[in-house]
């Protein structure tokens, strides 16, 4: 499906913080000049077409418990595939990307506790014989990200 103007207006408006209240869609439907049922049907269609992934709360992963740390490695080209296999075999490695830089492997460690981050990073260094640079989050800045629909 291709979103029409009303779908786009919905997408733009619903990226704002929506108050947590019994009938969250009513005021927005009124504002957009459509019925609540129509708004919900459109959301359902956009979800089926994977234009949206969901409508709901965005949770702070760290607030739910657990520790996270962005890490980077400089992997020699001729060892790259071997190191990928070793690094990815750790269940604590959540995302891993090859990036265009001297530090060419970037991944996120996700563990139960802060101490586990250090333990896993040290195991990775032992397994690969390479340094694992740790870039923990010191401060998070307000995110204004919006997709113009």
């Amino acid at each position: 499906m291709t979103p029409d103007d009303t779908d786009r207006a919905i997408l733009n408006r619903l990226q704002d913080r929506i108050p947590i209240a019994p009938a969250p869609f009513d005021a927005i439907a009124t504002e957009l000049g459509i019925a609540t049922e129509n708004l919900l049907e459109r959301l359902e269609r956009m979800k089926e077409a994977r234009i949206i992934t969901r409508f709901g709360p965005f949770y702070d992963a760290a607030a739910m418990g657990g520790a996270f740390c962005l890490c980077a490695m400089e992997v020699p080209e001729d060892q790259f595939e071997t190191v990928v296999t070793k690094v990815n075999s750790f269940a604590e490695v959540a995302h891993n990307y090859e990036r265009s830089h001297r530090l060419n492997m970037w991944f996120v460690l996700a563990t139960e506790t802060e101490e586990d981050i250090e333990t896993v990073a040290m195991s990775l260094e032992r397994e690969t014989g390479l340094r694992v640079l740790r870039f923990p989050k010191l401060r998070e800045f307000f995110i204004g990200f919006r997709v113009a629909a």
Binding site: I10, D16, R50, I51, I52, F55, P57, F58
Partner: peptide
């Protein structure tokens, strides 16, 4: 408490 950042649509 900022456990929920916001309630909103997640566009792809």
């Amino acid at each position: 408490r900022r456990i929920i950042r916001r309630v909103a649509v997640a566009p792809n």
